[in-house]
Design a protein around this nucleic acid. Structure first.
Lengths: 146, 146
DNA sequence: TTAATTGCAAAACTTTTGCAGAGAT
DNA sequence: ATCTCTGCAAAAGTTTTGCAATTAA
């Protein structure tokens, strides 16, 4: 039931000397199968639908490992737990502090800051780990008409 | 023992109908007295040096209240607890993922992104709540010579 | 075989909450 | 006097860890 995308990841992992277990397979299957950003708790539920015995601690350890390997990334959308997703397709998250809507924007939006931080501060920015908080168009409009 | 800055905040709070208690006084004194960014735990220790009976829960409630009033802000530097500081003097934090060094840069650095997010996405950015993670000059140099 | 990985249970860590009493205005 | 705020204790929510057993390679 693993998608082609998941299968490719299995191969990559094996090539890097990692073991493919039923827990890891299930985690990768879930992540490869969705565009959502999942908390560990959501990930656990989804994994448990396929593999009821996989333990919460294993999910934590698995995403940690996958993160070290650069295969998953996590992001903080706000307070509360981090959300995980596959590491391809990097993008930046805008979170509306009013309605919670999440908008994904290309990393290119940050190129200017990236350049300035590098030139003026010698600081090399990593792909954004945190979201940008603010207010979306719709909520802004609503606020104006109030 | 309250600094002039702290005293001004007492006045502001009273003017806004808030009560000045020994816990709140202590919290404000600590925050007004440092340029550091403190976790609640650090804040608690500092507060307890002056007021040993002030409880952890009260510190949480106090910073929450002060945040609602716009008097303090908190920022996430990385994983782990948030850090609190007085709300004036807004700046953006760069955190080096290698050595942990924190660099403060003026918010102006983000003006370009702010503009693009507004123009292209109708999104109004709030003063940055999250830090920018990356690698500082020194760690970058060290990595190159290895 | 054997070293990595897991399940479990327990703990660690951060934050929140209900409630009765203390305290600021 | 009134109503906010506090201390306490307990719980809730998230993540980590030690260890023995399992399992992929």
């Amino acid at each position: 039931m693993s998608s082609p995308r998941a299968l490719a990841l299995h191969d990559e992992l094996r090539a890097r000397g990692e073991r493919i277990t039923k827990a890891r397979r299930a985690v990768l299957d879930v992540l490869a199968d969705t565009d959502e950003h999942l908390t560990t708790e959501e990930l656990l539920s989804a994994v448990n639908r396929a593999e009821p015995d996989v333990h919460r601690a294993t999910v934590y350890r698995t995403v940690d490992r996958l993160a070290e390997l650069g295969i998953v990334e996590h992001t903080h959308l706000g307070h509360g737990p981090a959300v995980y997703h596959l590491a391809n397709d990097l993008h930046q998250h805008l979170v509306c502090e009013s309605c919670g809507r999440i908008t994904e924007v290309p990393m290119a939006i940050l190129r200017g800051v990236e350049r300035r931080l590098h030139d003026e501060y010698g600081f090399t920015m990593s792909p954004m780990h945190f979201s940008i908080v603010g207010r979306c168009q719709r909520c802004r409009d609503e606020a104006e008409h109030a």
